[in-house]
Design a protein around this nucleic acid. Structure first.
Length: 166
DNA sequence: GCCAACGTTGGC
DNA sequence: GCCAACGTTGGC
């Protein structure tokens, strides 16, 4: 699998990602309070994002990003603890994520399981990320970007870690 | 609440 | 397969 040119993975290094969530829907505090501080990253209904979910491997790390909120930005780090598998919310008629075109015998949408690894002491705001020239090519910083799941290069990952609020 | 930037849908 | 209309995302 994983033939994508855009993958941030190599054979010897773990992959890095960024996952967006609207805190009014699911925040890092919700994850902190969750059983085993673990959640299924369900509800992704975009093919590009879906493809990235399927590239993820156990042990990969991802920034947890809060979007559509007063201060959008990175609020913590999670680890992928279960690789991509069919998203059952697509099969539930009463779910907001229901998709009648996804069938259990041929699932259209996938999710991963993630576990909280680190909560930043303060949000690392998008404005700061946009201000760092090392991150000017980040997918997140591209105008009009709407992807909710995206790869992060190892260099970008390190640059962002250095910006972490104390 | 506005609006730009996309992705999706459906008629043809 | 084109493309206009529509819906959604998400910063501001």
């Amino acid at each position: 699998m994983a033939k994508s040119k855009s993958s941030s993975r190599s054979k010897t290094h773990k992959g890095y990602w960024l996952l967006k969530s609207e805190p009014s829907s699911f925040s890092i505090d919700d994850l902190k309070k969750a059983k085993k501080q673990t959640t299924s990253w369900d509800g992704v209904r975009n093919y590009q994002a879906r493809n990235y979910l399927r590239e993820m491997k156990v042990g990969d790390l991802a920034f947890f990003y809060h979007s559509s909120c007063p201060v959008p930005g990175i609020v913590g780090i999670v680890e992928i603890i279960h690789e991509g598998y069919p998203d059952p919310s697509a099969f539930l008629v009463n779910s907001p994520y229901y998709d009648p075109k996804s069938h259990p015998e041929n699932p259209r949408w996938y999710m991963v399981d993630v576990q909280l690894r680190e909560t930043f002491p303060a949000v690392l705001p998008l404005t700061a990320l946009k201000g760092n020239p090392e991150l000017k090519n980040m997918i997140l910083n591209r105008p009009g970007n709407r992807l909710s799941v995206m790869p992060v290069t190892p260099k970008e990952w390190q640059s962002i870690l250095k910006m972490k609020p104390l």
